[in-house]
Design a protein around this nucleic acid. Sequence first.
RNA 1: GCGGAAUUGGUGAAGUGGUUAACACGCCGGAUUGUGGCUCCGGUACGCGUGGGUUCGAUCCCCACAUUUCGCCCCA
Length: 421
Amino acid sequence: MIAKPKGTYDLYGEDAKKVAYINDVLAAICEKYNYEFIRTPVFEATEVFHRSVGDASDIVRKETYDFEDRGGRELTLRPEGTAGVVRSYIENKMYGRDLQPVKLYYNEMMYRYERPQQGRMREFNQFGVEVLGCDDPFIDAEVISLAYNIFKLLGINNIRVNINSLGDRESRDNYREALVKHFSKDIDKMCEDCQERLKKNPLRILDCKVDKDLEIMKNAPKTLDYLNEESAQRFQKLQEYLDLMDITYEVNPNIVRGLDYYNHTVFEIEMLNEEFGAQNVLSAGGRYNGLVENLQGPETPGIGFAMGFERVLLALEAEGVNVPINNSIDVFVGYVNDEEKETALYLVQDLRLNGFICETEYLGRSLKSQFKTADKLQSKYVIILNSDDIKNFEVKVRDNKTKEEENVKINDLVDYLDMNM
RNA sequence: GCGGAAUUGGUGAAGUGGUUAACACGCCGGAUUGUGGCUCCGGUACGCGUGGGUUCGAUCCCCACAUUUCGCCCCA
């Protein structure tokens, strides 16, 4: 048997219906916020992603699907949404539009070569938004509210919004320096990973799971203490705006995003269920002033977030949310002989074109089985075809709830069903 | 990339080094010769993840690999 590649999954059945529902919710809320749908290619020039994340960490080295096409081009399957969207923003000169800022959302499959575990796949579905061309914390608050309200709308309530500010480049560099200084003195008492992190990505030491209870960790410098005047004011403003919208959040100085391009606002929405597993961040994002320039565009501020479907599905499960899924049909058309079968074919087409969800028998089974099937489909009506009725241009319509049967002229059928539905 | 656990039919699963691999659900058919949902009866595993090995003989023992899963790392 040929199996699916490691870390991929087939979406079908109940989950497929849930995903369709989530898509509807996302599209609806984005419409209200007036964000515009954008789709970019599944693969981009490798440079797009490598440039955007910088050379930090293991990401570029071992977690992207890089390949060369037959023309010798270096390409990469998109591991995230932001870089491709920003590339498109630049290439299509969206910075020149008369309507600013540019507010975009995407909903695509992403690819990362990682060790799979629950809530983490190699091919996965991310939804995200990017706002380009606005530097006001006002928009930061809007973006966070959008992320927050998605979960509210979906009925996922057991969540926490964590926010933090990394400040501008100056603040960030000062902080980073202070952090390295602070940890350097006792780095040999810390875990191997942290010793490595000190060199590669010192901010990440803060969310180490091994050393989190060490004294040196608790009295580590806080990002917020290193914000310069301007950065601190922005962060203050952001909190005021969130308060105005009644969004509950927590200032968590340990929220540091992994990548260099983040500055000022960063945030995560995490699932609070104890049994949720290690991959509990449902949604994460931040401000990335400077990224557009990195990708050779004009100096443009940006902010965005992304949300993983796989985890949202798990969250819906954990929260016991009953996703509204319509599993019932309107009409089942049953028949036995060939003449009736032809009528059935005509009839279901007619009913479907008139807006009824309609099923019929495909496997030539007994009438008894067809009734069973109609029940399983939770059909509101069952039409039983009968040669004699057909000669009179009639069909027998049974209300599958009351079990009452009535003969109805075929020409009147649509009206009859409309009236009783 | 590192460590632990798991892998039996469409599903949930029991089980043993040796003839026909429990049980339940589901599915199909019949009792009910065109009216079901209850009941009863019958049917339903290219054979126990893949490949090797040990053995007279392995689904059950050993090894490797794959996949899943729980963590670590990383997290755009």
